[in-house]
Amino acid sequence: MPEASWLRAARRPQVVDVALAALVLLAVSLQFLLPERENDDELTWLGFLFAAATALPLVWRRRAPYITGILVGAATTAMTLHHAPPPDVVFGGFVVLYTGAAIGTPWPRRLMLLLWLTGASVSMTLKEHAEPFEYAFHLTSLLGAYGLGRLARIQRAYTEAVEERARRLAYESEMEAARAVARERARIARDMHDILAHAVSLMVVQAEAGPVVVRSDPSRAEAAFEAIAGAGRDAMAQLRRLLGVLKEPRGSLPPERSPQPSLAALAQLIAQVAAVGLHVEQLRTGEPAELPADVEVAVYRVVQEALTNTVKHAGATKAIVQLDWGVDELRLTVRDDGRPGKTRVQGAGQGLIGIRERAAACGGTAATGPGPDGGFWVIVTLPIETQTVG
């Protein structure tokens, strides 16, 4: 048998109990195997059988601790009354008291301790005529065995509590990892929607305009096709960066990637939209302040989605992107002069949901709908840091 298998077998409770019973049997047999000449106690076979009976029931000490205690107690009492020889040290009593204290219920184990203490006191008084120090030794030994059992019980309870806490922490860690994966998937889905919707919308508008002017205005047609290619390349680059995260092996170093879009990229975005024929004006009020990275990304994506909806659904000729910087918040407004109405809101439904989700993820709010003078408005309020940009 391999060494590891032998060790596992040796640690089984049944093997431990059999070995313990054998050890106690050996201990109580020593006065028969190695009798002392100056000892006046008579040695008989019946006395040996009583001594053996204090050890053999210990094989069942875990499965039936109180029955084992009764059998060992009865054998010890019989050995005491037979007195040939008397039980000098109640090894079996130590084991059953320890076992009862370690795994037993409160009242039975306390009753068992009381019976053993009483029995030992009566035996020493009536049969042994013991000296005071012998009372102290035997009774303290019984109490010590019971106390060791209580300590083992406390240690086991502490170990189980620590293990349960470790299992709970591991479960909570797994749940948090699952929530993080869900949040990341939602973020990737929003980004993919914004990137593809914006790029495809611009490409469709330019593709529809290209054939119309290909004969009458070749230069304009050429610019339209270049805009289509540019929108496609930009979309591919952003998708490559986005999907690169999903392809990374766990634990590997991330590949070099361009940073997420920020406020500085708004000018390029507006120029890209203006290439399809929509006049976009950018307005700013207040003192610009430092923005967290996720808020900058949210501003860019909201503007991108709002202008994409304008190009796809509004039939507008003009749009305004306005940033109003306050003390502790940024108010972003994107409005156009296109046609409002239910059809447009339904067509842009997924994008509008994405806008509200992005605002909520940053601790802000979003409102969309027809403007007071026509057109369509997107108003997003996001929290900012109070420190201004120097």
Rank of each mutant, 00 (worst) to 15 (best):
G351E: 06
A231W: 05
A170N: 13
S216A: 15
P108L: 11
A319E: 05
A19T: 13
T310D: 02
Q31T: 14
I67M: 09
V24A: 06
V321P: 05
A367V: 14
L382W: 05
R63F: 05
L266M: 08
L278P: 05
V276E: 11
R63I: 13
A84M: 11
F48E: 12
G374R: 09
R344T: 01
W116C: 11
D324K: 06
A170R: 12
P211S: 14
T44S: 09
N309S: 06
L382G: 05
G244S: 00
A359P: 14
F91N: 04
M203P: 08
R12E: 11
A306Y: 08
Q155R: 10
A178N: 10
L117T: 05
A130I: 01
A136V: 03
L246K: 00
E329D: 05
V15N: 15
I379F: 11
P2C: 10
A51L: 03
Q346S: 13
R62A: 11
Q206A: 15
A231I: 12
L283T: 04
L196H: 13
L246Q: 03
M112F: 10
V96C: 07
E296N: 02
P370T: 08
S219D: 15
L58C: 15
D41P: 00
L20E: 06
A293W: 11
Q206T: 06
Q346R: 13
F91T: 08
M203W: 04
E296V: 08
A223P: 03
A52W: 09
I67K: 05
L139C: 06
P383I: 03
P132C: 03
I353F: 10
A178P: 02
L30S: 06
M192W: 05
R358I: 13
A4P: 13
A180Q: 06
A306H: 01
I188P: 01
M203K: 02
I154V: 09
W107I: 09
P261W: 03
M112Q: 05
F225D: 00
P255K: 02
L196D: 06
I355N: 00
T317N: 04
V213K: 10
P85L: 04
